[in-house]
Nucleic acid binder design. Structure first.
Length: 550
RNA sequence: GCGCCCGUAGCUCAGUGGAUAGAGCGUUAGGUUGCGGACCUAAAGGUCGUGGGUUCGAGUCCCGCCGGGCGCGCCA
């Protein structure tokens, strides 16, 4: 469609209806957007408004010239039904019923592939998220990052990207030692360390310590904390993986910090930075000159005691990821980590990478509330409520929807009572219900020996209601493309609600299965089947179930 | 003090510089002898925190201020 407009614009210029573009303007931004409802059009463009200044012409005159040229275009006639110029210079287009019919036939041929598109951008994407250290079960503070990360991956994949889901964790640091010491203390009945872990899961771990492990710690007492820590953290990690799977979130790679040390990635990063003259030593520590790239402070990579900082490991990880063939690194971090964004991107740039290929998305805070009261902490256990508890109460579909519908940069109140509402007053179930309703209709028709028509050819003309549903179905690829580019899913949930609404209205106004009109019934079954495909594709994009009955 | 994020309907939130700022919930008033009423229609509800600026056009971009959150380690 943009192509058609661009050609019409070029034709208008070459025919002399419009003056040539002044040099230095470059390709005009030929946008095709969705017009507001009152415009009663399928597509709208504001090219004329944007060209008003460079062409030094009234927007309405430009729009008229482009519209005339579009009207005369042979390629447009089968697609564009009517063209209208609206104040102050919009070009509104309406698609022909024939184009809608052909497009819907293509949708039904594509089946489950409908809604997958190819958007421009970096192709091999690594998305690192959750990355909570395995020292305790995931709690509701991890919920948003887990869902948003997975949603982002799904949207990128639907946009044609190849995505690797990666979980990074610390497997040998002080936190793991602390976990080992805590488990040991409970097992031995001694006092917990000062800042030891004291949740119920620590007691469970202590009770489950295998005999071989107890024997091993007895054989080498100075290694006891480490041995138990390793064992316990692996147990906890496996529990985290199981929790995530219950959310429908699976990872392709579980990456340990120790790998970065063992395989020399941090050393490699240091050499790279050293060669570029980006490092200096001071007070016995090794520093990265982050201020050279606009940071407000320089940053320590290796402490004076010889140990690498977290930042040191981070930059080794950057090299590792790029060496594995990714050309786009996305990190989902809690908003509290925003202070570390600049140094990481600076280091990536200093190592010779394009800083725009290293992207940190900050996930804003969630306040879980019930009747206006904060419920993040469990009163009973005195610790954060676990992710498992939350999911048990509200369900995966509702939780996914809740996070998908909100911008990640906005801190939100998660109303548990609203989210767990199982009725159609809850948008997620309203949409799921639409899918179930269509499935029911198709089922009923099949029982009566009635199947959808092979083609919708010639069935939409004159039926504004059916055309309205068709237009809504056909918006999906644009919605997916926008989502993939924006790396956000709010548009997808909004679309899902609108599609369901349009379908319900269609259902009210048009009887699908009518024994008195078999041909019409078959055509409507085909239309409704396309709607079902669009709903299933949309819900699948969100990781939400599309049931055949509820 | 400096930096980042946020402030939009009673509530929870959308809103790639474009047309009369939207959705869900809640409130109010209606609708069905039919394929799933878990549905549909309509109404009320807004100084887009605030004051300037840029622009043909600003909820959106820039600056100041107010309010809220988070950061500012040789911690992780």
């Amino acid at each position: 469609m943009e192509q058609l407009l661009r050609e019409a614009l070029a034709a208008a210029i070459s025919s002399g209806a419009l003056p040539a573009l002044p040099p230095g303007i470059g390709e005009p931004d030929v946008d095709v957007a969705r017009p507001p409802q009152q415009a009663k059009a399928d597509l709208a463009s504001s090219v004329a408004l944007k060209l008003a200044r460079p062409l030094r012409m009234a927007p309405l005159a430009i729009a008229a010239a482009v519209a005339a040229s579009l009207e005369a275009s042979a390629g447009a006639s089968a697609v564009i039904g009517s063209i209208e110029v609206a104040h102050p210079g919009f070009i509104n287009l309406r698609l022909t019923p024939g184009f809608l019919e052909r497009s819907l036939d293509a949708v039904r041929t594509a089946g489950a592939a409908f809604g997958r598109v190819e958007v421009p951008g970096r192709h091999h994407v690594n998305v690192e998220f959750v990355s909570a250290n395995p020292t305790g079960p995931l709690h509701i503070g991890n919920a948003r990052g887990a869902f948003v990360g997975d949603l982002l991956c799904r949207v990128l994949e639907a946009g044609g990207r190849e995505v690797t889901r990666e979980y990074y964790f610390n497997d040998f640091g002080s936190q793991v030692m602390n976990l080992g010491a805590s488990v040991l203390a409970i097992a031995n009945g001694t006092d917990l360390p000062e800042d030891g872990y004291r949740g119920a899961y620590v007691h469970e771990l202590a009770a489950e310590l295998p005999d071989e492990l107890v024997a091993a710690t007895a054989a080498s007492p100075d290694q006891a904390t480490s041995i138990v820590g390793q064992w316990a953290s692996e147990r906890v990690r496996a529990g985290i993986e199981a929790s995530l799977e219950r959310l429908g979130v699976t990872f392709d790679v579980w990456f340990t910090e120790s790998t970065l040390h063992r395989e020399g990635w941090i050393q490699r990063a240091i050499e790279r930075l050293q060669a570029g003259g980006h490092l200096f030593e001071q007070d016995g520590a090794l520093w990265f000159r982050s201020t050279a790239f606009g940071d407000d402070k320089d940053r320590v990579i290796r402490r004076s005691n010889g140990a690498y900082t977290y930042f040191g490991a981070d930059i080794g990880y950057v090299i590792n990821k790029f060496e594995r063939g990714f050309d786009h690194l996305i990190y989902l971090w809690g908003a509290d980590h925003h202070g570390t964004v600049a140094r990481n991107r600076n280091a990536a740039e200093a190592m010779g990478y394009d800083r725009s290929a290293v992207e940190m998305l900050l996930i804003a805070w969630v306040r879980f509330v019930r009747d206006g009261q904060d419920v993040s902490m469990s009163k009973r256990a005195g610790e954060f409520i676990t992710l498992d508890d939350l999911l048990e109460e509200i369900g995966v579909d509702a939780a996914r929807w809740y996070f998908a519908a909100r911008a990640t940069t906005s801190s939100i109140d998660f109303d548990i009572e609203a989210a767990k509402d199982p009725t159609a007053a809850n948008p997620v179930h309203y949409v799921r219900y639409a899918h179930a309703r269509i499935s029911s209709i198709l089922r009923k028709a099949a029982e009566a020996g009635l199947g959808p028509a092979d083609s919708l050819d010639g069935t939409l003309a004159g039926d504004e209601v059916a055309q309205g549903l068709a237009r809504e179905i056909l918006r999906l690829p644009d919605v997916v493309g926008d989502a993939a580019l924006a790396q956000e899913t709010q548009g997808v949930t909004a679309y899902a609600t609108e599609l369901a609404t349009v379908f319900h209205a269609f259902y009210r106004d048009r009887r699908v299965v009518d024994p008195e009109a078999l041909e019409t019934s078959r055509a409507r079954l085909a239309l409704v089947d396309a709607a079902r495909l669009a709903l299933a594709s949309t819900l699948g994009l969100l990781g939400i179930s599309a049931p055949d009955s509820m």
